Amino acid sequence: MSSDSSSAKPILPGATIGIFGGGQLGRMTAMAARGMGYRILVLDPDPACPARFVVDGCIEAGWDDSREAANLARGCDVVTLEIEQISPASMEAAASYAPVRPGGAMLAVIQDRIEQKDWLRRNGFPVGEYRAVRSLDELRDAVAALGGRCFCKSATGGYDGRGQGKVGFNAGASLEDEIRMAWEALGERAGVAEKAVDLEKEISVLVARAPNGEVKVYPAALNHHEEQILAWSVIPAPLSSEMEVQAREIAEAIADTFQLEGVLAVEMFCTIDGRLLVNELAPRPHNSYHASVRACVTGQFEQLVRAVCDLPLGDVDVVQPAAIANLLGDLWLKDGQAVEPRFDAALAVPGVRLHLYEKHKPRKGRKMGHLSAVGATADEAVALVQRALAALQDG
């Protein structure tokens, strides 16, 4: 089967969709796809991955196993992904048997933070000051050039605070000690040093684009992080109409430049002086758009299915404001002992729903599920989901 999308035809229900990755994003995509009448196969190295319990078949293999990637695609009509770590060889092997959306060229840019930043800058998109660093000496030079306060991120892998360090924020440590600790946080490997900016808020914008060129851009989501992990998010974000339009235009232009087939989340910083800066790109469903399932006419997981199958894209208008709060593994652990969160207490809060991912080993910082809530306003939705989270913790 050719992966050329120039003469693509809609892939209708009854067909089989393959997913690289069986984590919570793959699980929720599979649940949306099954509701639409598709069969689902996933590839994941974890034999107990969250998607395994809701799909038709699961191939246990690593992201760099091109032979099994080909086997996945051989049994599918289209392949998509829920994680960026797929090797180029695996993407290429799969594309020999089925369309892979989004494609390998786009993924190669995004999965390397140095190349991603360089690509954004080359194509005229607004990014903050940064330097690529490939040694401790280069990190020292970058910190000096960027004014002494930086966030450092590994070039590949790393998320939810892993593979990241900070310089210039610890008054009790010398600058040299902070630089060394940041280099260690990068795994003593290549990364990006980014100049700290004065933030007003963090937002994300999700774009869906089908092979036929149809595009839908979701209203922006407002995101709140704690210890570099998303704590809560709400749709729609409280933005001025001018900034909402600007964020939408930036995200759509990035998707068009890539010739995206699928969905793309564009994380952005809103600075105190009124600028929008692109932070990172994710070519898949995004944690900050879990609330779209309740806030918007079409949730992000159904939209991904529509996009990769070249179906008409769904309406993205907000029906009602909605917020989510992540449930981390810390909630299952107290003083080193296993505890059961009070889900019943959380569900007693009006408008709240519980979403668990069937991960059986809670760990500190691991995303085990999320709560969602709807409200008359974005502020009310956030207040309700935070109230539910407090009830879950305290009973």
Rank of each mutant, 00 (worst) to 15 (best):
residue 384 L to H: 11
residue 96 S to T: 08
residue 386 Q to L: 15
residue 70 A to Q: 08
residue 65 D to A: 06
residue 38 Y to D: 06
residue 291 A to C: 09
residue 58 C to V: 15
residue 197 V to Y: 08
residue 43 L to Q: 10
residue 24 Q to V: 03
residue 126 P to R: 14
residue 64 D to V: 03
residue 304 L to C: 02
residue 279 N to D: 14
residue 118 D to Q: 15
residue 323 A to K: 12
residue 67 R to E: 10
residue 159 Y to C: 05
residue 135 S to E: 12
residue 104 G to I: 11
residue 290 H to S: 13
residue 26 G to R: 01
residue 284 R to A: 13
residue 145 A to F: 00
residue 23 G to L: 02
residue 23 G to V: 06
residue 51 A to F: 08
residue 37 G to I: 02
residue 180 R to I: 05
residue 58 C to N: 03
residue 80 T to R: 00
residue 377 T to N: 13
residue 52 R to M: 05
residue 61 A to L: 09
residue 318 V to A: 08
residue 379 D to G: 14
residue 195 K to C: 07
residue 385 V to G: 02
residue 325 A to M: 04
residue 103 G to A: 15
residue 213 G to F: 11
residue 359 K to S: 06
residue 308 V to S: 07
residue 254 I to C: 07
residue 387 R to W: 03
residue 338 A to E: 04
residue 120 L to F: 09
residue 93 A to N: 13
residue 85 Q to F: 00
residue 266 V to Y: 04
residue 100 V to G: 00
residue 144 A to L: 01
residue 150 C to L: 05
residue 326 N to T: 11
residue 236 P to N: 11
residue 60 E to Q: 14
residue 341 P to R: 06
residue 305 V to T: 11
residue 155 A to M: 13
residue 208 A to H: 10
residue 76 C to Q: 07
residue 115 E to Q: 11
residue 389 L to N: 12
residue 121 R to L: 13
residue 80 T to H: 06
residue 387 R to S: 14
residue 64 D to I: 02
residue 265 A to I: 01
residue 210 A to H: 01
residue 164 Q to T: 04
residue 215 V to W: 00
residue 254 I to S: 09
residue 12 L to V: 05
residue 110 I to G: 04
residue 264 L to T: 04
residue 344 D to Q: 12
residue 52 R to T: 10
residue 171 A to C: 01
residue 74 R to V: 05
residue 169 F to N: 05
residue 373 A to L: 06
residue 237 A to T: 10
residue 106 M to K: 04
residue 4 D to R: 13
residue 112 D to C: 09
residue 188 E to H: 06
residue 195 K to R: 15
